[in-house]
Computed example of a mutant assay.
Amino acid sequence: MTGNAAPRVRGGPVPSALQSDELTHVELTHVEKKIEHWVRFGRLAEETVIDRRRRIFAFRPGAIFAFVRWASNDFGTIISRIDIVRAVEPGEPYQTLPFVRPGGDTLLKIDGWPRVERVLRHIDAVQAIGSDPEDVSPDHWRHVHNRLTAGHEPRAYTADQHRAFLLRRRAEP
């Protein structure tokens, strides 16, 4: 960036609070039957409304969230994708991802509506056992990614696995 020009987000300047903080920002867009970006789960730190079709969600470092993107044209769906991402600490390496700034640690990335639906059903199953998807072990989301990528059904996440993960996380220094 040169001079005093503010960075732009598709047609409008980014609010100054979003330019230099330590949060991970996700740009959401909703244009009926054309573009739909939404967050399926995740604990928000901030929300900024840009206009009636766009908003920016921000997540603290370490937060896990699911970002869904769907778009179509006159001939049908052109993209359907879900990414489960861990927001990174400043200075930590990350993968870039469209509409996510600066990027994040990608735990799962799946495209194609039938497989995206399977991930959404898996998230519903995690919630059905009383667990918040953002609190699930990151290794489980990697497992779901690997199994679906290989064309297999992922193993269910159980309440016992969740308790063990939470205990292990509390025991870590």
Rank of each mutant, 00 (worst) to 15 (best):
residue 128 A to T: 04
residue 108 L to Y: 01
residue 121 R to M: 13
residue 109 K to R: 14
residue 126 V to S: 03
residue 116 V to T: 13
residue 129 I to W: 07
residue 131 S to D: 06
residue 117 E to Y: 14
residue 109 K to H: 10
residue 110 I to Q: 02
residue 131 S to P: 02
residue 133 P to D: 01
residue 110 I to S: 01
residue 128 A to Y: 04
residue 112 G to I: 08
residue 107 L to T: 06
residue 137 S to Y: 02
residue 136 V to G: 00
residue 107 L to K: 07
residue 118 R to P: 08
residue 112 G to T: 07
residue 128 A to N: 10
residue 120 L to A: 14
residue 118 R to N: 12
residue 132 D to Y: 05
residue 134 E to K: 05
residue 135 D to F: 02
residue 129 I to S: 05
residue 120 L to N: 10
residue 112 G to R: 10
residue 112 G to K: 08
residue 108 L to R: 04
residue 120 L to R: 15
residue 128 A to E: 10
residue 109 K to W: 03
residue 131 S to I: 08
residue 125 A to N: 08
residue 135 D to H: 05
residue 124 D to I: 06
residue 113 W to T: 08
residue 118 R to C: 14
residue 137 S to P: 00
residue 130 G to I: 03
residue 126 V to G: 01
residue 135 D to Y: 00
residue 115 R to N: 14
residue 109 K to P: 00
residue 122 H to C: 11
residue 119 V to Y: 03
residue 111 D to Y: 10
residue 127 Q to V: 07
residue 112 G to W: 06
residue 110 I to M: 04
residue 116 V to P: 09
residue 114 P to H: 07
residue 114 P to I: 10
residue 123 I to Q: 00
residue 125 A to H: 08
residue 109 K to A: 11
residue 115 R to P: 05
residue 107 L to P: 02
residue 123 I to A: 05
residue 117 E to G: 14
residue 128 A to Q: 11
residue 122 H to P: 02
residue 118 R to E: 15
residue 119 V to H: 07
residue 119 V to L: 12
residue 121 R to L: 15
residue 110 I to L: 03
residue 123 I to F: 01
residue 128 A to V: 04
residue 131 S to R: 12
residue 131 S to A: 15
residue 124 D to P: 03
residue 129 I to F: 07
residue 117 E to H: 15
residue 108 L to G: 01
residue 128 A to F: 03
residue 120 L to D: 09
residue 137 S to K: 04
residue 115 R to V: 14
residue 126 V to Q: 02
residue 121 R to I: 10
residue 123 I to G: 01
residue 136 V to Y: 00
residue 124 D to H: 10
residue 114 P to M: 07
residue 118 R to W: 09
residue 115 R to E: 13
residue 109 K to S: 14
residue 132 D to N: 10
residue 133 P to N: 03
residue 122 H to S: 11
residue 128 A to K: 11
residue 112 G to D: 04
residue 132 D to P: 03
residue 116 V to Q: 12
residue 134 E to Y: 01
residue 117 E to P: 06
residue 108 L to K: 09
residue 121 R to F: 06
residue 120 L to Y: 09
residue 116 V to C: 11
residue 112 G to E: 06
residue 136 V to M: 00
residue 128 A to W: 05
residue 108 L to M: 13
residue 136 V to P: 00
residue 117 E to I: 15
residue 107 L to D: 00
residue 111 D to Q: 12
residue 111 D to P: 03
residue 113 W to R: 12
residue 119 V to C: 08
residue 128 A to I: 05
residue 121 R to Q: 13
residue 137 S to F: 02
residue 136 V to L: 02
residue 118 R to D: 12
residue 129 I to N: 08
residue 124 D to R: 12
residue 133 P to E: 01
residue 114 P to W: 03
residue 127 Q to P: 03
residue 134 E to P: 00
residue 133 P to Y: 00
residue 119 V to W: 03
residue 118 R to F: 09
residue 124 D to V: 07
residue 132 D to E: 12
residue 135 D to C: 01
residue 118 R to L: 15
residue 112 G to M: 09
residue 124 D to C: 04
residue 117 E to W: 14
residue 108 L to I: 13
residue 120 L to K: 14
residue 119 V to M: 12
residue 108 L to T: 06
residue 111 D to V: 11
residue 119 V to P: 07
residue 115 R to K: 15
residue 116 V to I: 15
residue 123 I to C: 02
residue 125 A to L: 11
residue 125 A to D: 11
residue 122 H to R: 13
residue 124 D to K: 12
residue 124 D to L: 09
residue 121 R to D: 11
